[in-house]
Design a protein around this nucleic acid. Structure first.
Lengths: 207, 207
DNA sequence: CGCGACTTTGACCGGAAGGTCAAACGCCAA
DNA sequence: TTGGCGTTTGACCTTCCGGTCAAAGTCGCG
């Protein structure tokens, strides 16, 4: 019998291992070629399974992709959720930038999967963007606004401030090839970026 | 007889029109799905031509893609080339940011095509990145360095300064869907971005 | 008008893609 | 040890994809 994909019922060792291997391989392939450019054969090969075997664990290519995206979103938004309204404004924002850059460094495939999805129209996650993401951003934007009104950080359009953090941190994962090609060897892009972005946001937010 | 793709020999009206229609349609499709995700059938349909007709003007899918990329690179690097070593530092950099944002606004498909290409490993343009692009960036980085040493703008790692301009401006084209989903209706992302980025770079570069 | 060059297309090819299925395999509890 | 359930796979189906080709259509110039 085919295992239920979403159910949390007890999974066998083998199921856990294979489902994980498939998702990992799919992350490789989807993040490199986008949904349409990815093929089940390639995912199966990377996962070390046969294609029918792969389709024993997931009902379709779409299902694998969807599972990856939903699994990803939580990790991805976690740093923003952690931004604490009661903390010190500058420290909180810099910590957010730092955590976001860490995500880019440690989960570049996830970043590229997400970028690919948005780039290609986001049809599979548009609803989530307009609801979950938008609500979260609006909530945090209000926190930023309050800090600005209290004169604790510089007054700026809060949404665009958040966009700038996303853009600057994700750039190092999504455009990794370009960054390394331009910098040449002998550089640690992420270490340099960490210092640079700290300077940037310190200056931007200073009163 | 098949028309030579690259030659500048006199083209008939029809050739010019159809080649342009194909490149335009291909830009649509490639920028939305990446190279592997795009299909000739789809390009042909968008261009309003039959597939064999399309292959009468271009020898292959690759050839269309390559033509787009090479045509794109010049437009894309032009604003950076225009950065004038003899101009006023702050004014020059802000003008660069402004022009780059204009490109994102006016040529979002080109931006996404480029992003797709980098994201998917840039195998087709890696050499150009490591030579043409790198040389240009190094040259301009030296100009920035000189300005910094002369105390005319704040001292920062020049390459990362350039990356930040790319990241912040291209974000509004590449992640357009997300930006609009988060902002909701009643916003003009590019106008707001223009003002925000001017503030950002003014503060970042101030002595 | 007529003719040669340019343009367009329907039919087709081999291979790759997503997905199905029945049969075979293997693990483990009774 | 064996029966049964979970797992794996070879063969196959249909559709799609990049690309070819010969034949038909059209354009413009003398």
């Amino acid at each position: 019998m085919q295992p239920e994909p979403t159910a949390n019922r007890p999974q066998t060792r083998i199921q856990r291992r294979n489902r994980q291997a498939i998702l990992d391989a799919a992350l490789d392939v989807f993040s490199q070629h986008g949904f349409r450019g990815a093929t089940l054969d390639q995912i199966a090969e990377v996962a070390g399974l046969s294609k029918p075997n792969l389709l024993y664990y997931f009902p379709s290519k779409e299902a694998i992709h969807e599972q990856l995206l939903t699994g990803l979103l939580d990790i991805w938004l976690d740093p923003l959720r952690k931004l604490d309204p009661k903390g010190d404004p500058l420290r909180e924002i810099l910590a957010y930038v730092h955590r976001k850059l860490e995500l880019s460094r440690d989960y570049p495939r996830e970043s590229r999967l997400f970028a690919n999805e948005i780039l290609q129209g986001a049809s599979r996650i548009e609803r989530v963007l307009a609801t979950v993401l938008r609500d979260l951003v609006d909530r945090k934007a209000r926190v930023l606004m309050r800090w600005m009104e209290e004169g604790r950080i510089a007054a700026l359009p809060p949404h665009h401030l958040i966009f700038s953090i996303w853009a600057l941190t994700q750039h190092y994962a999504d455009f990794d090839v370009q960054v390394r090609a331009v910098l040449g060897p002998g550089h640690d892009p992420y270490a340099e970026a960490d210092a640079f972005l700290e300077t940037l946001f310190r200056r931007l937010l200073a009163i």
